[in-house]
Amino acid sequence: MPYQSIYARGLFDGQTVIVTGGGSGLGRCTAHELAHLGANVVITGRTQDKLDAVVKEIRAEGGTASGLVCDIRDELAVQATVTSVIEQHGRIDALVNNAGGQYKSPLKDISTKGFEAVVRNNLTGGFTMMREVVTQWMAEHGGAIVNIIADMWHGWPGMGHSGAARGGMLTLTETAACEWAEYGIRVNALAPGGIASSGFDTYSEEDRAYFREQAVPVIPLRRFGTESEISAGVVYLLSPAASYVTGSCLRVDGGTPTWRGGWPLQGSDNTEAFRGFHLAKPPVVLEGTGYSV
């Protein structure tokens, strides 16, 4: 069974799309859907083996994909990667700024070096990717950019460094959308809430207990999201259907930031999850919990 996208095959025929952090999780899923829809997908990341595995998956299903090792924290590496994509494929039609990461810690325990590392990973690196695809290609040809941020609304206790970076990426998105409109470039953000992907399994056992016992009860739709629900949002923002959408942020979070405790949340699994990604596997942390995704 191929990817079960709701979008028409051929939607991105002839287009080249870069997906950073494409070796796993949301980036892997998004790369699969874009390739399924006809895009020539270039995935980047820090681990060659992961990139090779995803490229192999996509090619085995008839898609077009390639992988380039690139640490978005390294400015020279980003510049070289964008140059390489243009040299190899002759164009860059879209960028999905998905790469990032953080670790859990209270603010008082975060060193300045640690804070700066997370900001560089989730804000500065994304800025560098945006700037390079624009200066090297899109300023003369147009294009679309989607920046993946996070559910950091109303603060993000335990993830203050990442929340600061993601909030910065939101305002950067809005600024870029205004400044780059003259070039025919659209820039939007997408903010995932709790998404059941491989990222869940990178946290400690204490954090895993939180996912199992405390996270779902405060989600109005009473479930985690799926990787393909994020990818579908990305595809929309890159598609012609969103040609009048720029400087916006699409929240895909089950309504979590909206609930403030003033209304009792009842029931379970209040919507049926969209499961378009045929290779998706539930994270180990959710096994045996009864939570459907």
Rank of each mutant, 00 (worst) to 15 (best):
S111I: 08
G247I: 04
R212S: 14
G194E: 08
L170K: 13
E132P: 03
D13M: 10
I58P: 03
L250C: 05
P2N: 12
N40L: 14
M152L: 08
L250H: 03
S243G: 09
A144S: 13
V118P: 02
D109H: 12
T81P: 05
G67D: 08
D151R: 13
K113Y: 10
R223D: 00
P157M: 06
Y291P: 04
A189L: 12
Q48Y: 09
P220H: 04
E33H: 04
A94V: 02
V134P: 00
A273R: 09
V234K: 07
A176G: 08
K281S: 09
G125Q: 07
T246Q: 05
R46C: 02
A181F: 01
D71I: 11
A65Q: 01
A60H: 05
T16M: 06
L170A: 12
N147K: 02
A280N: 02
D74V: 06
M169W: 07
I145M: 01
R91G: 03
V55G: 07
V54G: 10
D201M: 09
T175A: 15
G101C: 05
E179M: 07
G199C: 11
N122I: 12
I145D: 00
R131P: 01
I72P: 07
Q48I: 10
L238F: 05
G45P: 03
I58L: 03
G114H: 00
P264S: 07
A35V: 04
S198G: 14
Y236L: 14
I148P: 03
S292E: 10
F274L: 09
T128I: 15
C249Y: 01
R260F: 15
W156L: 09
M159C: 12
L34D: 10
G233S: 09
I110Y: 04
Y244D: 11
P240G: 04
N270C: 12
Q214N: 14
T112H: 08
I18A: 08
S243D: 11
V245N: 03
V146T: 04
V55Q: 11
V133P: 00
D269Q: 15
D109W: 10
T256D: 10
Y3G: 02
E206Y: 13
D253F: 01
A164G: 04
G225L: 00
M1R: 10
A65M: 06
S24R: 14
V17H: 10
G167S: 08
G290L: 09
G262S: 05
S239M: 09
A39L: 03
E182V: 11
G125N: 04
Y291R: 09
D201S: 06
V78F: 06
V54Q: 06
V42I: 10
N147I: 02
S84Y: 01
G167P: 01
V216S: 04
K108C: 06
L238R: 02
R59Q: 11
G168N: 06
K50E: 03
D207P: 07
V55W: 12
T83G: 12
H161A: 15
T44C: 11
Q79H: 15
T20S: 11
Y183P: 00
P282M: 05
R260I: 15
G114E: 11
G184A: 03
N122W: 05
Y244A: 13
H278R: 15
P283A: 12
